[in-house]
Every structure is written in C-alpha cells, then in structure tokens.
Simulated assay, not measured.
Amino acid sequence: MKFPSTLPTPHRTLLETIITRFSADPRIAGIAASGSYTTNTMDIYSDLDLVIACAASDYASVMHERFALIEQLDGGVAAFSGEHVGEPRLVIALFAPKWADEPIHVDFKFVALEDAAQRVDPCQVLWEREGELSQIYASSTPYYPQPEPQWIEERFWTWVHYGATKIARGEYFEAVEFLSFLRTTVLSPLALRQSQQTPSGVRKLETRLPEFALELGKTVVKPEKLSLIDALNRVITLYLRLRENEVVIKREAAQQVSMDYVARLLN
C-alpha cells in the first residue's frame, strides 16, 4: 500500500495496525480514509479519519461490538460515540501507544456499504475484501453541505437582536459564545463559498482566506461590554458585505428593527 508522503510515521504505524486487525474480521468489507489523508496535507497534529464499511446484514452486530473492536488495538486511552456532533455512527478515539511520542486522534465511522456513498469528502480505499467499497465511491460523488443564503437572511437579524440582548443584560460570556456561532455558521461559510472553497466553518481559515481571517479576528474579543458592542457591529458589517454577493430576498424590516435596537440599546 502506498501511503501519502505527509503521513507521519506514528500515524502510519497505528494505521497499519488498524488495517491488520480490522481486516481480519470477516464482517468488515472495507476501510477507507478521508480528510487530510486524501489531500496529502497531514502533519503531526492531524487526525486519522477512517470509514469502516460492512455488509448491511452485518452492520448491527458490528455497531454493537464497535467499542470492543477498537479496544483490541494497542494504546487506546479513550473512545466515545459522536452524538454530540450529530453522528452516532462515529467513534472518536484517542491512542497513546508506547512507540508514539504524542497521542493520536482517530475517528472511526462505521457504515453499511450502501450508506458509504453519502459522504462530504473524497475517500481513499485503504483495504477492501471484494472491491465493493471502491465501486460505491466510483459511482457516487461527495457533497459538502453548502450555506443557504436565504436561510441565513431569514434568521440573521433575529440573531443580531438576541446577541444585543445578551450584551445589554450583562451576559458577556454568553455573548462571546454567540459571536462564535455567527462566525462559524454565517460569516466564514459564506466567505469560503464565495471564494469557491469548502465552507467548513472556520477550519484553517487563517491559511485559506488570510485577509478575511484578519477581519474576522476583530470580532474575537474579551467578555467586556464595549468590546462586545464593537464586535457585534463588525459582524453586522461583514454580513452586509457578504450578502451583497448573494441573491436573496432582503428582510429589510427585520434588519431595520434589529439595527435600530443595537444602536439604541448599545451605542
């Protein structure tokens, strides 16, 4: 097997062990990798993002035993399911094998073979039993969910009002977290989409859109009233600029009410 040139040696050793152990289970039909593995952009901080595919008839039993399968690997120190990110098929695991200088994070996504077609990133098959996983990937296309500008416009001005009430009430930590939500859900995805890049929140924004990242950085502030007011106004300014590049029905009444509220209450 030819591994990406950027795959760190500890990751490679762990990956080889995973392939050897999992391929010995007759219920498992294939193993694939996604993320930075497929783009050959890994470094020592990278996760291993793995897809573990099995026949539909074996899926229930594999899911039932998925933690036992992971526990047979050397160096595991933690493993838990991914309901908190909306993906119960996912097991997030941390390994600290004796031969590795640093811990390694591995995401195991257990899927039935026919469900492997639904994916957000390209996947590279690492091992398979009958060639079925390769066939599924060859006959389907990854699709990353795109931000819907009209969906955002329908909500944004109510969100602005909500953020303003938190600042006015003195719930500064709540306001800090809410600004983070707007960066991740609204501003960064729109900016990335408009530059024809995958709209994956704020992930690697510093290198993907460095100039926009500098502007967005000015909305990251301490839990203090004046700083939060300035940050909220900057969020509004950035959104209005991004909205000009989209075809939307502008909710001008909601915009005016919210902006008047911000000006009257906070400025």
Results as ranks from 00 to 15, higher is better:
2 K>S: 13
4 P>Q: 06
9 T>S: 13
14 L>T: 06
15 L>W: 11
15 L>R: 07
16 E>T: 15
21 R>F: 11
25 D>G: 06
26 P>T: 11
29 A>L: 13
31 I>G: 10
33 A>S: 14
36 S>E: 03
37 Y>L: 02
39 T>P: 01
41 T>F: 00
47 D>E: 08
56 A>P: 02
57 S>R: 12
59 Y>G: 04
59 Y>P: 02
59 Y>K: 09
59 Y>D: 04
60 A>I: 03
66 R>E: 00
67 F>K: 10
68 A>I: 10
68 A>T: 15
71 E>D: 15
73 L>A: 08
73 L>M: 10
77 V>E: 15
79 A>V: 10
80 F>G: 10
80 F>E: 14
87 E>N: 11
89 R>E: 09
89 R>C: 09
94 L>P: 01
94 L>C: 01
95 F>N: 03
95 F>T: 03
98 K>W: 12
102 E>S: 15
108 F>T: 03
109 K>Q: 11
111 V>T: 08
117 A>F: 07
118 Q>T: 13
120 V>G: 07
124 Q>W: 13
124 Q>S: 15
127 W>H: 04
129 R>V: 05
132 E>T: 12
132 E>W: 12
132 E>K: 15
133 L>D: 05
135 Q>S: 12
136 I>S: 03
136 I>K: 05
138 A>V: 03
138 A>N: 05
139 S>Q: 14
140 S>D: 07
141 T>L: 15
141 T>C: 12
142 P>D: 09
143 Y>C: 14
146 Q>R: 13
149 P>W: 14
149 P>L: 12
149 P>K: 09
154 E>W: 10
154 E>P: 01
156 F>W: 08
158 T>M: 11
158 T>D: 12
158 T>I: 14
158 T>L: 13
161 H>N: 04
162 Y>G: 03
166 K>H: 05
168 A>L: 10
170 G>N: 04
175 A>H: 05
175 A>T: 07
175 A>N: 08
175 A>L: 06
178 F>H: 02
179 L>M: 11
179 L>Q: 08
181 F>Q: 05
181 F>S: 07
181 F>N: 03
188 S>N: 00
193 R>A: 10
197 Q>L: 14
198 T>E: 12
199 P>E: 00
200 S>R: 06
203 R>D: 00
207 T>C: 09
212 F>A: 01
215 E>K: 12
215 E>Q: 15
222 K>S: 02
224 E>G: 03
224 E>M: 02
226 L>H: 05
227 S>D: 10
229 I>Q: 09
230 D>G: 06
230 D>Y: 09
231 A>D: 02
232 L>T: 05
232 L>G: 00
232 L>I: 08
233 N>M: 11
236 I>N: 02
238 L>G: 02
239 Y>F: 12
243 R>A: 14
247 V>Y: 15
250 K>D: 05
259 M>S: 09
259 M>V: 10
260 D>E: 14
264 R>H: 12
